[in-house]
């Protein structure tokens, strides 16, 4: 099998592997939120390799500076932080499927949008997400009541700790990516992104 075929199939195989592990992953709130959701995001990220640039033409048209992509990904992330959404994903197969599709989509969108966005735009969304996730993490640790019908209180505390840790990891990864080329390199990227791109011909 050629390398290109392997590259194309790999995310699908990873997704199938994750589907097999799903019952185990969703038995605990910690593995559901801190392992399964980030892995789904990573698979989406994987679907947007370097050669895809800032994505297909239709997306580039509506995603200048990565604004729409980041906003949609932030909205998706917000929804799956709600305890009632998490419960529904466990109990109702249709909601579970919507979760998989939306989180994979958000991973794909974020990687494409990062390439289209300046460091300023990137930092706005990444820091907003981190703030929201860390707050949810602290709330999960402090809530005296069980928030998810399907999960236990002790599990909720661990999930809170996991979410705060996840925030730290994501900020570290983003800073490494954003400042890899140094602040000047990042600024140059931003300038390049402001150059008008020719509209696609139908």
């Amino acid at each position: 099998m050629s390398r290109a075929v392997v590259t194309a199939l790999a995310p699908g195989v990873a997704l199938a592997g994750l589907a097999l592990l799903q019952p185990w992953l969703e038995q605990r709130m910690f593995t559901h939120m801190v392992v399964e959701l980030p892995l789904l995001f990573a698979i989406g990220w994987w679907l947007a390799p370097v050669r895809t640039g800032t994505g297909p033409a239709w997306l580039r048209q509506v995603n200048a500076l990565g604004l729409s992509g980041f906003t949609l990904a932030l909205a998706i992330s917000t929804v799956w932080m709600l305890p009632l959404a998490l419960d529904a994903a466990v109990l109702e197969p249709a909601v579970g499927l919507a979760k998989v599709v939306s989180v994979v989509l958000s991973g794909w969108l974020v990687r494409l949008s990062l390439r289209a966005a300046s460091v300023v735009v990137q930092s706005f969304f990444v820091i907003n997400w981190a703030w929201m996730t860390a707050t949810a993490g602290v709330l999960y640790q402090e809530a005296p009541q069980r928030l998810c019908s399907t999960y236990l209180l002790g599990d909720q505390t661990w999930t809170g700790i996991g979410l705060v840790a996840l925030t730290v990891v994501v900020i570290a990864i983003w800073m490494t990516l954003a400042f890899r080329t140094g602040p000047r390199g990042a600024a140059r990227t931003a300038v390049n992104n402001h150059r008008p791109t020719p509209l696609p011909t139908p």
Partner: peptide, 27 residues
């Protein structure tokens, strides 16, 4: 336009899911 659509859809979706932003848990 896309951004406006996403924001409106998110607002409506969250509004419906959380019974007008008053419930975040299934209970």
């Amino acid at each position: 336009l896309a951004l406006a659509a996403i924001v409106v859809a998110t607002f409506c979706g969250l509004h419906a899911m959380t019974h007008g932003f008053s419930a975040v848990t299934s209970d």
